[in-house]
Amino acid sequence: MTARSVPAPPAGGRGARGAGRARAWAELLRLPALFTVPGDTLSGAAATGTRPNSRTLYAIGSSVCLYEAGMVLNDWADREEDAAERPERPLPSGRVRPGSALAAACALTGAGLVLAARAGRPALTVAAPLAATVWAYDLALKHTPAGPVAMAAARGLDLLLGAAATTGRTREALPSAALLGTHTLAVTLVSRRETTGGTSVPPLVALATTALLTSLVTRRRLPPADRADSAGPPLPTRTPPARTPAAADPAGPGSRPVPVPRPGSTAPARFTADTALRAALATAYAVTAARPYTHAALNPSPPLTRRAVGGGIRATIPLQAALSARAGAGVTAAVIAALAPIGRKYARKVSVT
């Protein structure tokens, strides 16, 4: 018998095809943008003044699934438009089938709702409208004037999901959700021109929004017990005793009275480690977002506009961290901030837009 040689696998065989499919799905899911998601939930928990717990982890899983469902559904809904404007995307290039993308979006949505239910009924109460907002945006609202508002609402609800899962309540997290939603609104306005460019107005609006948010997040948010409108009995007051001339001027004529702080007055802010952390994170947010916005405002070409959108998405992480630091959760802020370099590393391989 003559032994027959086994032919070597052809170049670009099964292994290469598998790697190609994995990269196509990574592009479809926009994996680097995934690192902007856990900070929503964590900053929502921080806004309530409570440490993250096991329910927070379920909320993070839910948030990740719903976010990625939106990413896949976005490309599925835009597959014909992308065929003309961005033929290299996974669906128009044929690397991912439309039916597979739609099935993945449905499966991810279902998984997100199941994980939210595991976090508790309050979390599911927020996750359900979040999922509905994601689908409404991708299928109906994206190209309407309501599109940016819907996207902003989705980010705000994502932050509230963390608060609801961690504590069962969302009221304390509403201001943080409004700030994060405002940032998302600005980024979405810019993204509507990422394939056509042509106007400096959206980047200029985003620049002004970034400046406003930077100013707001550097101010420390008082915990509920320190706020004037917090619940609780009023502080006791006492009537000062009548003073004799000697008591009124114990040091004699010409002496200055010692100022006595009134109840509820605020002492001058001291520069502390907490203040430094908020300032550093706010600066990181401003720098990350403002530079590409400025370039797009000066030259609103499609490549620079897409770069501005990417910068706005990456700036979400330092903003989330700054919101957590503003709520007094320095450790949570540091954990969120640590996600930024990881996302930046993978963004060099897979586009976030």
Rank of each mutant, 00 (worst) to 15 (best):
residue 129 P to C: 13
residue 319 L to F: 05
residue 133 T to R: 11
residue 289 A to Y: 02
residue 182 T to M: 14
residue 50 T to G: 05
residue 22 A to D: 10
residue 56 T to Y: 12
residue 240 P to F: 09
residue 237 T to Y: 01
residue 213 L to G: 02
residue 2 T to Q: 10
residue 132 A to D: 05
residue 97 R to W: 04
residue 59 A to V: 00
residue 211 A to C: 07
residue 334 A to F: 04
residue 101 A to L: 06
residue 319 L to D: 10
residue 349 K to P: 00
residue 192 R to T: 06
residue 207 L to V: 02
residue 263 P to T: 08
residue 326 R to M: 00
residue 330 G to M: 03
residue 345 K to F: 03
residue 71 M to P: 03
residue 197 G to H: 11
residue 295 H to V: 14
residue 211 A to V: 13
residue 275 T to G: 04
residue 317 I to A: 00
residue 166 T to F: 02
residue 335 V to T: 13
residue 124 L to K: 01
residue 326 R to L: 00
residue 318 P to C: 01
residue 11 A to I: 03
residue 349 K to F: 08
residue 36 T to V: 07
residue 146 A to V: 05
residue 249 D to Y: 04
residue 38 P to Y: 03
residue 51 R to E: 10
residue 349 K to W: 13
residue 135 W to P: 02
residue 262 R to I: 03
residue 86 R to E: 13
residue 149 V to Y: 02
residue 291 R to F: 00
residue 63 S to E: 10
residue 35 F to D: 02
residue 324 S to C: 06
residue 54 S to L: 14
residue 190 V to Q: 09
residue 10 P to M: 06
residue 263 P to I: 05
residue 204 L to C: 11
residue 143 H to N: 10
residue 158 D to I: 00
residue 120 G to D: 00
residue 105 A to D: 10
residue 126 V to M: 09
residue 48 T to S: 11
residue 318 P to I: 03
residue 184 T to N: 05
residue 271 F to H: 14
residue 72 V to E: 06
residue 150 A to F: 15
residue 349 K to C: 06
residue 309 V to S: 08
residue 121 R to T: 13
residue 68 E to R: 08
residue 145 P to S: 01
residue 309 V to D: 13
residue 39 G to K: 04
residue 108 L to G: 06
residue 68 E to K: 08
residue 195 T to C: 07
residue 166 T to S: 14
residue 269 A to D: 11
residue 147 G to M: 06
residue 339 L to R: 08
residue 103 A to I: 10
residue 96 V to A: 11
residue 70 G to Y: 09
residue 212 L to Q: 11
residue 41 T to D: 00
residue 196 T to A: 15
residue 291 R to L: 05
residue 217 V to G: 05
residue 205 V to M: 06
residue 290 A to K: 07
residue 134 V to S: 08
residue 297 A to I: 03
residue 77 A to E: 05
residue 84 A to K: 12
residue 241 P to D: 05
residue 48 T to Q: 08
residue 33 A to E: 13
residue 295 H to P: 02
residue 185 L to Y: 15
residue 138 D to K: 04
residue 216 L to K: 13
residue 11 A to N: 09
